[in-house]
Design a protein around this nucleic acid. Structure first.
Length: 491
RNA sequence: CGGGAUGUAGCGCAGCCAGGCAGCGCGCUUCGUUCGGGACGAAGAGGUCGCGAGUUCGAAUCUCGCCAUCCCGACCA
């Protein structure tokens, strides 16, 4: 392991790349644009999955699994959907290899060409709606509330670990409803699930909002999002929930008989969060010493490092440490006693710091004499000596304090980097120099959004859900405007 | 797909201009001393110099071709 991380102030994206590698979260693979998620990184993803999955179940959803491959013809059934994804699809054209007649390795067997080519799913709306047609006949079959955990592939030009990879892991919910209102309510319910999860578990403050037409999901009538602000002042979309109207129902002919015996198209939603959340987690909390994890998602919440010169000391310290481990475990706290004899304490300190373990305890000979322990907080880097007495209760409380502190720090940062602007000059100043959100009136047209993007690279990250009551003038065109929206450069 | 760069030990790199034993740092192995913030010493292991042609007595080094990767743009969760 190399010793030092690039400093955020020197090169933020280099810092991010270094951190992902050095905290042992993931690495690039032999396949361009596709990453290997390493055990430590994956265990954080598992925590995310576990909690979200519980929350989906609590809101009435069930898991299912749909195929990786989608017939090409399905794709072309919903016009804007094709347009949105066509440019980044991996396509399966053959189903067999053979030995190269020239003796060099293996080649594609040209005789094994598929009659209909298969698309590796970039998202599953089409295959799922083709299936739902068979499942839905009556209003009694509705609502249909399904989620799947899956991998998807989008052939991206430029990739970054977790933030944008050719293949990524996610969950995608796909629901069918009898009425428009119910579908919209579903999309909003999930938006709430997402924001609750991201704020309470990941300790990342998010704005809930609606996407502009330009940023909307291909095939959706309305796209809701949760949007977070990263430490470098760029915004990151952390999750989306779409109201799809009847677009997919019409494209795939999914109809039901209503109570009053009328044949109607169903109303749909889809929603997802991906391993991109890992990127958000890293970029929200971490510092120049490495990863900082909120306790609720930390695979290891407390690590105990023994300091000793000889076997007798090691054994005495281990007895003490194991007592602490036992008590903490019984309280449901994830604790590890790092008794590796192959590494020195200093090395372990640095390693656990790099990997973001929220609380570190060090126990040495002096602590045994004094009946104390050294406790170090990862979020503040503060150290203090504590009496053994009542230690476990203090740690339990401290973990909650850290969780809240991380959220508050991120929230303070976001507030400090949200600028309400009234003139185009101020707007450019914020986007080009300060970073963060620029909140301004917008005339509601795509043309204006496009021009702002061309001139500043900033896009509308979201339109607040609350209706704005005051009238204003568009920051760019000067035309009358009713919507104040959040602009930022984005990941 | 446009612009720029790079391929030499597990990782990071020097050597190439001016052809002549394959090097350095980190990591790895063994032994000893260490252990309260990334230990030290000694001894070791580890190479198709991206691939293929060519020039030459001799190529990591020169020439040609190919391949791959990275960075910057256009596209995107």
């Amino acid at each position: 392991m190399a010793k030092f991380l690039t400093k955020r102030s020197e090169n933020y994206s280099q810092w991010y790349n270094d951190l992902v590698l050095k905290a042992d979260l993931a690495e690039n693979s032999a396949v361009r644009g596709s990453m290997v998620i390493k055990p430590y990184g994956y265990s954080i993803w598992e925590k995310i999955q576990r909690q979200l999955d519980d929350m989906f179940k609590e809101t009435g959803h069930e898991n299912a699994y749909f195929p990786l491959f989608i017939p090409k013809s399905f794709f072309s059934k919903e016009a804007s959907h094709v347009e949105g994804f066509a440019k980044e699809c991996a396509v399966v054209t053959h189903y067999r290899l053979k030995n190269d007649p020239d003796g060099k390795g293996i080649v594609v067997d040209e005789n094994a060409k598929l009659e209909e080519e298969l698309i590796v799913r970039p998202t599953s709306e089409t295959i799922i709606w083709d299936t739902y047609r068979k499942w839905i006949q009556s209003y009694r079959d509705l609502p249909l509330l399904i989620n799947q955990w899956a991998n998807v592939v989008r052939w991206e030009m430029r990739t970054r670990l977790f933030l944008r990879t050719a293949e990524f892991l996610w969950q995608e919910g796909h629901t069918a409803h009898a009425t428009e209102q119910e579908a919209i309510a579903e999309a909003r319910t999930i938006l709430d699930v997402y924001s609750t999860f991201v704020e309470e578990w990941m300790a990342i403050p998010v704005h809930k909002g609606r996407k502009s037409a330009n940023e909307r999901f291909a095939g959706a009538l309305d796209t809701y999002c949760i949007e977070a602000l990263m430490q470098d002042g760029k915004a990151l979309q952390a999750g989306t929930s779409h109201f799809l109207g009847q677009n997919f129902a019409k494209a795939f002919d999914v109809k039901f008989l209503s109570k009053d015996n009328k044949l109607e198209y169903v109303w749909a939603t889809s929603w997802g969060v991906s391993t991109r959340l890992m990127g958000a987690l890293i970029m929200t909390h971490s510092d120049d010493n490495g990863l900082v994890l909120p306790p609720r998602l930390a695979p290891v919440q407390v690590v105990i490092v023994p300091i000793y010169r000889n076997d007798e000391q090691f054994e005495a310290i281990s007895r003490k440490a194991n007592e602490i481990v036992k008590k903490l475990r019984s309280m449901g706290i994830r604790v590890r006693y790092d008794n590796r004899d192959t590494h020195k304490p200093g090395f372990k300190f640095a390693e656990h710091e790099m990997k973001g373990v929220p609380v570190r305890l060090a126990i040495g000979p002096r602590d045994l004499e004094n009946n104390t322990v050294e406790l170090a907080r990862r979020d503040t880097l503060e150290k203090e000596f504590l009496q053994m007495e009542g230690l476990e209760t203090k740690i339990e409380h401290l973990l909650e304090v850290i969780q809240k502190n991380l959220f508050q720090k991120a929230l303070d940062f976001r507030e400090a980097n949200t600028h309400y602007v009234d003139t185009w000059e101020e707007f450019k100043e914020v986007i080009e120099k300060k970073g963060g959100f620029a909140v301004a009136y917008w005339d509601g047209t795509s043309e204006t959004e496009e021009k702002i993007k061309e001139e500043t690279k900033a896009t509308i990250r979201f339109i607040p859900l609350e209706e704005n009551t005051e009238e204003g003038r568009c920051i760019y065109s000067g035309k009358p405007a009713t919507q104040k929206v959040f602009f930022a450069k984005a990941y």
